[in-house]
Write a protein that binds this DNA or RNA. Structure first.
Lengths: 203, 203
DNA sequence: CCAATATTTTTACAAATGTTAAAAAATACG
DNA sequence: CGTATTTTTTAACATTTGTAAAAATATTGG
């Protein structure tokens, strides 16, 4: 994808996220710990449209996105609502399955052909009990997600729909080229018609 | 507080959260680890109205609420917006200070006279590097906050103001007696007038 | 108990957002 | 290339929510 490469280069990122890049993103691991976790990793690839994990099922893996973009959505009385996008370097997971072993709240669907690294949750948690570096890595992983989730919550509570849209395109300019506006609208908590109005006002 | 005791009894909780109760809430700790963390704990009490921590300052402690109720709020263009309440058993902290050592986004103010346990963040993080049980305890602490934050975000994105209010009083019935409606309104992401309208419709 | 203050509700109107349906534009694919 | 399908925008109207100000209610402190 040419689009992605230009975007990565502009941010000074590698042109593809290797497993090494992704694991180091949260917490620097000594080699022995990194080897231990790499034992658990499986590489998988799925085509655009594939549903990575499904609501009302306990998901046994977490995924790291090496290439591609995905969305998490939930089935609500008003339709399918996207509440998360993940792209290169992000972790795609069901929080409920990962944290409390419960059924997932959401589907995660691939919006492009994706390369992913997959780790079995049960085995990962066993490592957390054996290796203090990995326990702290796991702590940082959750902290990272918490910061992102809190930012989203604050935006929903403090900001207007227009501000949330502006923030979205400033933070993720090329996502606009990779994701449908209808998905972005529900991610921002507004109808697609509202998003269209906001976009029209900015021209 | 009679109100609190009836509430605690109804939930099968202890009538006051001791440090022991609070520490075990996230993750069961072996005695040696529990002793290590207890070395760091200081008990503090402040009166209603006291500001526990302040926006734009790096907060060096996290607090566990043994007795009392507090709110976190941020100063926004539209006024002071409450975005979190904490009561007995909860952790009161600046995520930004705790996770990334940055300035707090919010004030935390005591809505009642409070008894708190305080832990120095820097010393706590040093323990995370030394004791695998505490590293996992810290992981669970963050996971617990993440689940709560994600639930809030989902409510903001998927639910109407009325549903959020209904959920609020179902989950925290006695908070209605302990917290001003104006604070609850901004917590729910609506104006106080809107909240009044919702309450009027329910009678 | 009373007066002062703070909080909550109500009212009237304005602004924002949602819904439905149709039109326009973009995309996919034979 | 051209048609079918999907996505996005626009329009019209209904509903929700916000703002400002006043009225009602509750709380506080002497």
């Amino acid at each position: 994808m040419l689009v992605n490469e230009a975007y990565f280069a502009a941010k000074g990122w590698p042109s593809m996220f290797t497993l090494d890049n992704i694991l180091d993103r949260f917490y620097p691991l000594p080699d022995t710990s990194k080897n231990a976790i790499m034992q658990l990793v499986e590489e998988v690839s799925y085509p655009k449209g594939h549903v990575l994990l499904t609501a009302d099922k306990v998901e046994r893996h977490i995924y790291f996105i090496s290439k591609g973009i995905v969305r998490a959505y939930a089935d609500t009385p008003t339709g399918l609502v996207t509440f998360w996008f993940g792209a290169e370097g992000d972790v795609a997971l069901s929080m409920k399955s990962y944290i409390s072993g419960e059924k997932s709240y959401e589907d995660i669907e691939l919006l492009e052909d994706c390369n992913l690294y997959r780790i079995n949750i049960e085995k990962l948690k066993a490592l957390y009990q054996q290796d203090i570096h990995l326990a702290n890595w796991g702590r940082k992983l959750t902290e990272y997600e918490l910061v992102r989730t809190e930012e989203r919550l604050i935006a929903m509570q403090f900001k207007t729909a227009e501000e949330r849209y502006t923030d979205f395109i400033n933070k993720n300019p090329e996502w606009l080229l990779r994701v449908q506006l209808g998905h972005i609208a529900s991610y921002l908590g507004i109808s697609q018609v509202s998003l269209s109005r906001i976009r029209a006002a900015r021209r």
